[in-house]
């Protein structure tokens, strides 16, 4: 999904509400810029087709 199809302002508002985080207005622009950067850097990983049997790296041993 390209950045241009995402409403980052709305995403920030909804996520901030869900995780009970207050984002003051003066920091919004920097956070949105960083969200976009993170999306760009993460995108190649998110597009990668992992084998179905892949397990997450951390292993919990009770």
């Amino acid at each position: 999904m390209s950045d241009s199809t995402i409403d980052w302002e709305a995403y920030l508002d909804h996520m901030a509400t869900l995780v009970e985080t207050n984002i003051p207005d003066e920091y919004r622009a920097a956070v949105i810029e960083y969200l976009k950067l993170t999306h760009t850097i993460a995108q190649p990983m998110l597009e990668f087709e992992l084998p179905e049997d892949s397990e997450p790296a951390p292993v919990f041993r009770p």
Partner: peptide
């Protein structure tokens, strides 16, 4: 901005990243 962004990322991304890490 980086720490604030980290609190707003989907959990789905985190688990996929940990799966990728294993692969």
């Amino acid at each position: 901005p980086g720490f604030m962004t980290g609190s707003l990322l989907p959990g789905n991304w985190y688990v996929r990243a940990q799966k990728f890490r294993s692969w």
